[in-house]
């Protein structure tokens, strides 16, 4: 793979059932491109957590994935409520998810810490009432 590839997805905020479909698609594409299994797993788990967050906390958004031979970059952008305290949100176990989300198997407050753990770089840009952009990089 000589040049870089770009994938774009709209993440529907009204449909919990389809949440994660973009991450599944990215996983499939990275497999076709022949990346190591461990890299694919880290990228797809981090993106999946971020995608679920957009659906659960921010009414959806857009996902862009840039694939280069030695780096995969995931950019998740939403126009949701923003994150008031990033340090707090990054703590394991901190969650504002309501009970109906918990009943669906999410809301353990593990998503952001997981995303950080599985990627080499993670940056959160957030503005209250305007939205949040999470940028993650995994080096190969």
């Amino acid at each position: 793979m000589a040049e870089s590839l770009k994938f774009h997805f709209d993440v529907d905020g009204d449909n919990f059932t389809s949440a994660g479909a973009a991450s599944v698609e990215v996983k499939r594409k990275l497999r076709q491109l022949g990346f190591p299994a461990e890299v694919i797993r880290r990228v797809s788990i981090a993106m999946y957590e971020g995608e679920i967050n957009m659906v659960v906390h921010a009414r959806g958004g857009v996902a862009d994935v840039y694939v280069e031979p030695n780096c995969i970059t995931i950019v998740l952008a939403d126009q949701g409520p923003g994150i008031p305290d990033i340090d707090l949100a990054m703590q394991e176990g901190y969650s504002t998810a309501p009970d109906n989300i918990r009943a669906l198997g999410f809301g353990a407050g593990m998503g952001l810490p997981n995303m950080k753990r599985y990627t080499d770089e993670m940056k959160i840009d957030t503005v209250l009432k305007k939205g949040t952009t999470v940028t993650m990089k995994v080096y190969i």
Partner: peptide, 27 residues
Amino acid sequence: MMSDVLAYVKDQGVLVTGLVNSQVIRT
């Protein structure tokens, strides 16, 4: 809790769960 499952990258072959929604399969 799917987020707990996602917190551990190891080669687990099997997920035992009482939760039923499409995120179980995606996880």
